[in-house]
Design a protein around this nucleic acid. Structure first.
Length: 699
DNA sequence: GACCATTTATTTTTT
DNA sequence: ATAAATGGTC
């Protein structure tokens, strides 16, 4: 949609690509848009600003940041770096880390930044004697940490871009003049900072096109606000609004299910999608025993589809609410030999060895980067222990220097450090100085090679162990990625590489050509589509997630939109799954079917019973889906179940936990399951078949 | 300062 | 279940 409009303005209105700025939700979407526009107009669109809000912000600040005191070599702190800087800030303020965890402070600060509140604004709004007061102190201290390290976090890439436009008139006017046309995709998920950027950039020429769907707003937790759609109509009153209800992706049965769910949301612009593909496979509901069986069911269904209908692996995707759910699928798919592609989860860039090497590279560009310094100062071991590092950091703080700078300028007066520690630090500082100057002169791959050799990192990894081999392989993979920057002259190649690394998302690194089932979260799947979609874990507490349930109706509505996003990813076939039992934190829990399943009229779903699957009686017993299966009550083959031996309120004994009371008894395909409250050991769940339990008859 | 055993938090979702 | 953080010992 946006793609065609961009191609249109270039082709017919003779707008040059460098007069256009287009914002997509992921870098992957940007890549695809670039390719499609170039194909449509048959020409390169070099010079066009195209990327995510964050990558465009980074680019802008790299170029123009000096106007507001941001050095061009600034480092982008990722999630982990930010946490570590916040931890330092909390310690510096003498606040108890147990009472106010770094992640909680990080969340509050991030929320503030997305609302365009800097430390001063935040402090001004704090109510005295609340947790916010401490957060305000941490916010200040954290900003000092970032400033000292010449670093920006993700939110700063937006916030500081807004600040830049506010404070540097000439910069603002240049970009306002330059961009004749502005395009924004997935507009419903913009936050205040992003909205402000759109508003400022579009203020002059007022050619702003945004595309969004209020039913697909699923990023409220990171400050996105659907009301930006309304603000847009307010700030650009001359805007023309086009509502699209025709859908070119899914079949009618799938769209009907989507509508059946989303219509339960309040506060939405009513629209009903339709398609010319009125005929389609029915949507299936699969009930399984636990997450393992869920994965097995998906696996065998995929194998069936491949065998019977010639479906390819790459056409299939498994969607879930939390990353932890991918585990069961990975285990089963590995064993059954089903190739898959996991999006997210344990990221490549989160591996220890990759982070270490990147930290060295980051230090070469920005010697003030304190997080990177702490990471590698003693890796490999250089006899610089925690004590010495702490002393050095103290010293650096006193002198107003970054730790590495302080290490470079150690003198005789710095008595707190022993002679051995001092020598070790000096030698490390010299090493980094040599590498930094190399960074200015040699291409990135050569620099990386020198880093690995001269720091002793290669030697450390190649220790002959299997683990060492795997880690080294990851380093080589990183080197391969760095190789793509060999033609960019130093030090720009290094800077671009690091920026890219900081801003790639998990979706960005998806490979379309990989033949495998895609495992992906419901959030990440936005904007993608697949022929066959499985939505796993449709259970209360998971989808909707228990944390969202705590937030009340607004939380549930967002979970419903998430479900809607999942459903509408499917082109031809859709499967909804729920389990009776699921492990959370390693402990088994009984699960109830999601309320969203109950919102779907029974005749729209085909209940698929697999051999050994729980009977209809079980599905009914779970309550919520009762409506969903009405039309299929006469289906054959209910499984014979053993009689229930325990009932609610019964007293029982257990050899390890003593006596307790039965809170709930459920029959599942695996037999009878009990929720028991023990007198001395809290609530536990047992399968009657596995545990030694006996009824107690009260005297 | 290294190494082990024990405890603790972690799971919402992400650029 | 599992990884990270903590604490104690050598």
């Amino acid at each position: 949609m946006l793609t065609h409009r961009i191609a249109y303005v270039i082709a017919t209105r003779r707008v040059r690509p460098d007069e256009i700025c287009a914002v997509t939700f992921t870098n992957k979407a940007a890549r695809e848009m670039r390719a499609r526009v170039e194909q449509l107009i048959g020409d390169s669109i070099r010079g066009m600003w195209l990327g995510t809000f964050h990558s465009l912000g980074a680019r802008l600040l790299r170029r123009e940041g000096e106007a507001i005191g941001i050095p061009p070599g600034y480092t982008i702190y990722n999630e982990a770096d930010r946490l570590s800087a916040i931890r330092n800030a909390i310690r510096a303020e003498g606040i108890d880390e147990k009472r106010l965890t770094p992640s909680r402070a990080a969340h509050a600060i991030s929320a503030a930044k997305n609302e365009l509140l800097d430390a001063r604004d935040f402090q001004a709004r704090v109510t005295p004697n609340t947790m916010d007061e401490q957060i305000a102190r941490i916010y200040w201290a954290y900003e000092r940490e970032l400033d000292a390290a010449a670093a920006l976090d993700f939110d700063d890439l937006l916030l500081r871009a807004v600040t830049l436009f506010r404070e540097a008139d000439s910069v603002r006017e240049y970009y306002q003049d330059r961009f004749l046309h502005l395009f924004v995709d997935e507009y419903q998920d913009t936050n205040k900072a992003q909205y402000e950027l759109v508003k400022v950039l579009g203020a002059k020429h007022r050619n702003v096109t945004v595309v969004g769907d209020d039913d697909q707003a699923v990023y409220g937790f990171r400050g996105a606000d659907v009301r930006n759609i309304l603000s847009f109509e307010h700030d650009f009153p001359d805007a023309r609004k086009v509502i699209l209800e025709q859908n070119y992706r899914s079949t009618q049965p799938i769209l009907d299910i989507a509508h059946a769910v989303i219509r339960n949301n309040s506060q939405r612009a009513e629209k009903k999608l339709w398609t010319e593909q009125s005929i389609g496979e029915p949507v299936r509901l699969i009930s399984v025993y636990d997450e393992r069986e869920e994965a097995l069911a998906v696996g065998s269904e995929i194998e069936n589809l491949i065998g019977r209908e010639g479906v390819t692996l790459a056409e299939c995707a498994v969607l879930y609410r939390t990353n932890a759910q991918s585990r069961a699928f990975e285990e089963v798919f590995l064993r059954r030999g089903i190739p898959y592609q996991l999006v997210g989860g344990l990221r490549f860039y989160d591996r220890k060895e990759v982070k270490d090497v990147l930290a060295y590279l980051r230090l070469c560009v920005n010697p003030r980067d304190a997080v990177s310094f702490a990471r590698v100062v003693n890796t490999p071991r250089r006899k610089i222990g925690d004590r010495s590092v702490a002393e050095l950091e103290k010293l650096a703080r006193k002198k107003g220097l970054a730790p590495l700078e302080a290490a470079q300028r150690l003198d005789e007066g710095d008595q707190a450090l022993g002679p051995a520690a001092m020598a070790a630090l000096r030698s490390f500082a010299n090493l980094m100085e040599r590498l930094s100057s190399d960074a200015q002169r040699v291409p990135l791959p050569v620099l990386l090679e020198r880093v690995l050799d001269e720091t002793g990192y290669r030697e450390m990894l190649q220790d002959g162990t299997q683990e060492g081999v795997e880690r080294w392989a990851n380093v080589l993979e990183l080197a391969g990625l760095a190789g793509e920057y060999s033609d960019v002259p130093p030090p720009d190649g290094l800077v671009q590489f690091l920026e890219n690394v900081a801003l790639v998302s998990d979706v960005d690194s998806m490979r379309d050509e990989v033949q495998g089932v895609t495992l992906i979260t419901l959030h990440q799947v936005k904007g993608l589509e697949f022929g066959v979609v499985f939505i796993a874990g449709m259970e209360e507490g998971l989808l909707p997630h228990s944390r969202a349930l705590e937030e009340g109706d607004a939380g549930i509505d967002e979970e419903r939109r998430l479900t809607y996003v999942g459903i509408t990813r499917a082109r031809r076939r859709l499967y909804l799954l729920h389990a009776f039992r699921r492990h959370t934190y390693g402990t088994p829990q009984l699960a109830e079917a999601s309320r969203f399943l109950g919102e779907i009229p029974g005749e729209m779903l085909e209940v698929q019973l697999r051999p050994g699957a729980p009977s209809l009686g079980d599905i009914r017993a779970s309550g919520t889906v009762r409506r969903a299966i009405v039309g299929y009550a006469t289906r054959p083959n209910p499984v014979e179940l053993a009689p229930q031996r325990f009932s609610e309120g019964m007293r029982i004994g257990h050899q390890r936990y003593g006596e307790g009371t039965v809170l709930k008894s459920t029959m599942t395909r695996g037999g009878e399951e009990l929720v028991i409250k023990f007198d001395d050991h809290g609530v536990k769940i047992f399968a009657v078949a596995d545990a030694t339990l006996w009824p107690i008859t009260d005297p």
